[in-house]
Design a protein around this nucleic acid. Sequence first.
RNA 1: GGGAGGGUACCGAAGCGGUCAAACGGGACAGACUGUAAAUCUGUUGGCUUAGCCUUCGCAGGUUCGAAUCCUGCUCCUCCCA
Length: 426
Amino acid sequence: MQDIFADLQWRGLIHQTTADDKLPQWLSGEARTVYAGFDPTADSLHVGSLLPLMMLRRFQKAGHRPIALVGGATGMIGDPSGKSAERNLLSEEQLATNIVGIEGQMRKLLNFDAGKTSALLVNNNDWMKEFSYTAFLRDVGKNFPVNVMLNKDSVKSRLGSDAGLSYTEFSYMLLQAYDFVHLNQQYQCELQIGGSDQWGNVTAGIDLGRRMLGKQLYGITCPLLTKSDGAKMGKTESGAIYLSPDRTSPYEFYQYWVRVEDDDVGMCLRFLTELTEEEIKSLDLARAAEPHQRASQKRLAEEVTKLIHGEAGLKSAKQATEILFGAEIADLSDKELQQIFADVPSVTLPMARLNGGVPIVDALVEAGLSKSKGEARRTVDQGGAYVNNQRVESVEKTLSSSDLASETVIVLRSGKKKYSLMKFSG
RNA sequence: GGGAGGGUACCGAAGCGGUCAAACGGGACAGACUGUAAAUCUGUUGGCUUAGCCUUCGCAGGUUCGAAUCCUGCUCCUCCCA
């Protein structure tokens, strides 16, 4: 049994606990069962969910049993914590597909075949759907003093706002609290972990456990994954970074981590990787001494990509990175290019167009790199357009067969990081 | 129901008869510097067949040689009173 508490502590993963003095010993005594809840708002988890998921993984590796709870029931209601407005409700069908997608991702991080410490995946809708409303009010609702609920931050802030709070969202807390009780009865689960915004819900579950079962349950919250400027990690201008390769390709995923700011990368290494304290500290030193080497970012990207997309995903992401950020692209085969640029958007034009010569301005627009010809012209004028990683010098340039990087493909680029493939066929 | 103000480009916000494709700020894009970081600096930011042309200032009409600017109707929003 490893000392999970100390591990979490040096990583900075403990924000609050319900029993600071007891937990370290309690966790080192014997194998415990611990759970964390996940919201099935999309068919893929995003970077924000990575942190609690990694927490479960750490617990499992330390010899405890993790339960990942998918909120099929609570997802229908919507958690008011940290939300400024009432949420849109998800349909049952949507929830069902979302849960399937999320399950697959959890299997990559948690071991579901590890004997006593095998991970479990449960859906709270499985026990909530059989619960009658009156029975729920009698057995669970009875234990919730409304004056206590009104004192929760998540409720207070909403009551003060114009948006108000519906009875439905107000009841969210009861459902989540009951989850904990149910998991305790069913699986002897005694510890809930969650983000710091879940504190209110976690403690509600613990209170309910004491009232209904007379048992002592525990809770740990971890910090939220936010950047030094307060923004959430995992959000880009073009949307969230997802764990599903269909939504966010391994290359994009890898690139996101490579581009993490210096100020945030130390935290990411601690929160999201399983590197040891020594390794991380030496990376901290390296970063201070020779920041331009960006060893921390590279290591972070490698570790996290490997975890989510496996060795193969990491390999292709790194390969693409090497080529894309390297020198001129030439003398490659279609096959190689296809592989390297698997993630990059592409367009296909008839070969006849190429023989006639494609003006660079048109090419940029058709490849989706510029919104209009005017914008394309500007990009070229400003020196921001590249063909096969070689800067385009003039707006007059036309693409011809001599610009092909392989048999049928030309690699276009706008600015530093935006790529597109132009394929010619026929 | 009464009164007041307002809808301008991605967002905020000037302009109130011609010199308006429309100030300024933010954002975004590109460049320089760098380290695929941050900060900073520079340029660009309606479209096109680009010395020019076309379409834009809530919508529809009108006045005028000429309208984002004036008039009429409609519509939406904000505030104040009931």
